[in-house]
Amino acid sequence: MFRTIFIVVVALAIALGGGAYSAWYAVNDFDGFGALKAGDWTAYPLEGTHEADPYSRARTAREGALPLGSAEGIAFYAYADHRGEPLMRGCEYRIQGNSPPARFWTLHAADDALVPLIPRAGLPEALHSEEVIRRQDGTYVIAIGPKPRPGNWLAVQGSGPLALVMTLYDTPVTGDSGLIGVTLPSISRVACDA
């Protein structure tokens, strides 16, 4: 009798505790099965669609996100540099290369919850492809960090983790075939103040 109660209580505790904790962890931190890596960047092309996996769906519902539709564009996120070191707001980075074909793209800095960072007054929150200065071969170099730099510069102040978001609008990349062989610019760390 006592043994049966013991089994039931332990089993229930493991089931409820373990199930709830693992579900909470998966919904908040698990990338889902639909994540697509392109160099230092990751995109979630199925987010918000009927084909999204249950984890991605649960997260979209919890965050109340309004993900871009496939005809609108696609967002790529980077949390680490080329060597795998996490991006930090106190550091200076250089983005170099080219973007996949798109009508235009934008680049902005965000915190680790993907809330856009607001730089000090007078500085732009984001850069876009129509204002970026390019080199002769069409590629570009963008400096990211607290110190002003000549050429393309995205100001980022403060401290803490940093995420970079590059959004491509009106792009064939969102199609089913488009994501193979997509190359995005590489992110390298120049220096760190801290």
Partner: peptide
């Protein structure tokens, strides 16, 4: 108890998600 609990945890996980 452990085995039952793990199976139950799997079910709870799926239902919550």
């Amino acid at each position: 108890a452990l085995g039952l609990g793990l199976v139950g945890a799997g079910l709870v996980h799926i239902v919550i998600v």
